[in-house]
Amino acid sequence: MFDFSRPIDRRGTGSLKWNQPDPAVLCMGTADLDFASAPAIRQALLDLADSGMYGYYAKPEAYYRAVTGWYGRRFGCHIEPQWVLNAPGVWVAARMCIDTYSQPGDCVLVQAPHFSPIARIIDCAGRRMVTNPMVLKDGHYAIDFADFEEKLRQYRPKIYFMVNPHNPTGRAFTAGELQRLVELCDAYGAVLVADEVHSNVLFDGHAHHPILGLGQRAQKIAVLITSASKAYNIMGLTYATVLIADEGLREQFAAAMGGYSMDFATNIFSVAAMTAAYSPACDQWLDELGAYLAGNLDFLCQYIAAHIPALQVIRPESSYLVWIDCRQLGLPPEELRALFLERAKVGLTWGEDYGPEGVGFERINIGCARATLEEALARIERAVKALGAQ
């Protein structure tokens, strides 16, 4: 049994999540966990550090076995070792894909609400972002396939950049939804780049379907980007696994990697951590983490329904990031931010960072000890009630 209930004070440690000018603020924004990583990961890093040898190393066979074995155990998905490439992080991999599979001036299609980094990456790459707004009905987000196909037809994007599970809505797309997306991208000649970094935490019996597990048609057009970072809390060991089944797509990406020496000069501590994370030694830790986070999610939903009914939780199917509908408060973004940050002293990820579809929403990170979550919600309750009393 692992103890996730003990709060860990991260103030003053250099944590980006907890780097707030006001030390009274509870930081519930940036997507990392306030839990120590799995013991097997820590031990792998200690063993490497104790060796005193930090030169160039080839990735060991154990790493490839860990990646392919993990996909088999967690998702029943067969991955060939030769499909496994890497990059120094998910967003680096995303930019490499944009540079590799499109040209300046081309369009990149994304679902909305969308996280601000992908908009910046597309813009900095000299491409144009086209959005496919998701439809919110009865607390559930759905893909607008008619709009998706129209955007493919009208703009002819070279790339569809998919985030699945989706950030910030928490949707874990069904196999049927994914098959339809694959069919449309294939029909209109778009490479499907799937960011699946949030796939390790699932709720309420929902499943994650890796894009490369959907058959040959998907494997012909898809690039899968993932990392152990989000679930195993190793974001600082920046690393992403890039899985490409199609030989042509893989050769293109490998050529881009070679241009940056990204395969030869790999951080050996990142590889050690990833190998440990994907090994069976961390399976129980991940399962217990998921159970603890499910308890946090239930607590959040019940507390808000009972004490802050002006807010609506968009219950996620995955991840530890929860999208909150605050539109009933009737506040513009700057006043909504002030309500949470200045009055409640709770730092969130602000909805307007997700584009126009995010205005009136905020994202809260429940990857913390229950006591921290309880305190944050109590603060928010007091601030909202004080707002109504004015």
Rank of each mutant, 00 (worst) to 15 (best):
Ile121Cys: 09
Thr13Met: 10
Val130Lys: 05
Pro21Arg: 10
Cys27Trp: 01
Glu150Ala: 15
Ala190Phe: 07
Leu249Phe: 11
Ala146Gly: 14
Gln154Tyr: 08
Arg217Ala: 14
Glu357Pro: 09
Cys97Asp: 10
Glu342Trp: 02
Ala146Asn: 10
His140Ser: 11
Val110Ala: 07
Ala389Pro: 04
Leu16Ser: 15
Val384Pro: 00
Lys137Met: 06
Phe145Asp: 01
Ala175Gly: 12
Ala222Gly: 10
Leu152Gly: 00
Val135Asp: 01
Arg128Asn: 15
Leu178Gly: 05
Ala146Arg: 01
Cys326Pro: 04
Leu300Ile: 00
Ala228Thr: 07
Ser102Trp: 05
Pro168Asp: 05
Gly360Ala: 05
Tyr354Cys: 03
Gly259Gln: 10
Gly290Tyr: 07
Ala386Thr: 00
His198Tyr: 15
Ala93Gly: 07
Leu192Thr: 08
Ile324Arg: 05
Arg171Ile: 15
His209Ser: 03
His209Pro: 05
Glu374Val: 08
Ala66Glu: 02
Lys230Val: 07
His208Gly: 01
Ile364His: 12
Asp186Glu: 13
Leu339Arg: 09
His140Ala: 12
Leu249Pro: 03
Leu311Glu: 01
Ala273Phe: 03
Ile364Cys: 02
Gly215Cys: 08
Arg180Glu: 12
Leu286Glu: 03
Asp186Leu: 08
Gln216Cys: 11
Ala371Asn: 07
Met1Asn: 12
Ser199Cys: 13
Ser102Leu: 02
Val92His: 15
Ile122Lys: 09
Gly76Asn: 13
Phe148Arg: 00
Asp22Leu: 03
Phe4His: 10
Asp147Ile: 13
Leu249Tyr: 00
Val242Thr: 08
Gly355Ser: 05
Ile324Ala: 02
Gly52Asn: 06
Ser229Ala: 15
Lys230Gly: 02
Phe340Gly: 03
Leu178Ile: 08
Ile143Met: 12
Pro39Arg: 03
Asp123Glu: 13
Lys158Gly: 13
Ala175Ile: 07
Thr131Ala: 14
Pro133Ser: 03
Val201Pro: 00
Pro23Val: 14
Gln179Tyr: 07
